[in-house]
Amino acid sequence: MKRIQGVKDSSEMLKKYKALIKSLENKHLNPRILESSNPFKHKTMHAVETINLTKVFRPARNMFSLRSPRLKTVTAIYQLNLKVRKGEVFAILGPNGAGKTTLIKIMCSLITPTSGTALINGYDVVKDEDKIKSLVGLVIGEERSFYWRLTGRENLEFFGVLHNLSLHEVRKRSEAIMGLLEIEDPDKRFYEYSTGNKQKLALGRCLLSNSDVIFMDEPTKSLDPGVASKFRKFIKEVLVEKENKTAIFSTHSIQEAEELGDRIAIMDKGLVKACGNINDLKADGESLFDIYSRFTSKREE
């Protein structure tokens, strides 16, 4: 591993470090080798970065066949290279089975990649798992991720404390968040909530932790068009523009990707087929629907 020697001043050190990365990139060398000695992890330009990220799933285990060689492995993500800038809304658009959820789960340290590197604000999702959990928030579209017998408020209090907030602080914050998101009847039990309210609560839970980078796995999946539109507006105007957070969301709705994403990555079968802002993608005059259809194996109905 190369070392940066003879450097006293920190700004000089940063310059040298960047120059070294540049020179390695120019020589087609992998700058990851410097990752462990990177003193400016938190100052990285990118909120999210993946380098040759690959995830291969092996067949599920059971008690009697620990590993069957006959069963095929599934490559969910293959050699994925992505960069998401800080303060950006990034859409991952793709059909079912494209690898969107796997990518998000890897970024949240819920799944270990098979090879390659994934970084959040310069921190490795495997090696710096504890740090990642304080940097990242996940809005899970799955309504079962809450305790149904508890009220909305009790759920927020529970998860807030697990996010290292004191009870006093979490009560204050959840009150403000419930007001901001217009969550109706916070003292109703969760199972009595409408789907829209449940989804708002999922976003509220994520906001409690005040994470820098927010991942959303199909956040408007089960919302009606009116609520979904309000939800998207909130993400764009409050979360990103006002609070300066980075938002990355997966979707298979072309309209949603176009409406919300500053940039869009079209994924299929574990590969990024196209990535860029909407104008770059439409450079040849094609509609996003045509581009999406060209790159993906199945047409979106």
Binding site: C108, L110, R144, S145, F146, L162, N164
Partner: peptide, 13 residues
């Protein structure tokens, strides 16, 4: 079973 495992693991606990 309840589906809350992911949300728990996501917290810095």
């Amino acid at each position: 079973g309840m589906g809350t495992m992911e949300a728990l693991i996501m917290t810095p606990t």
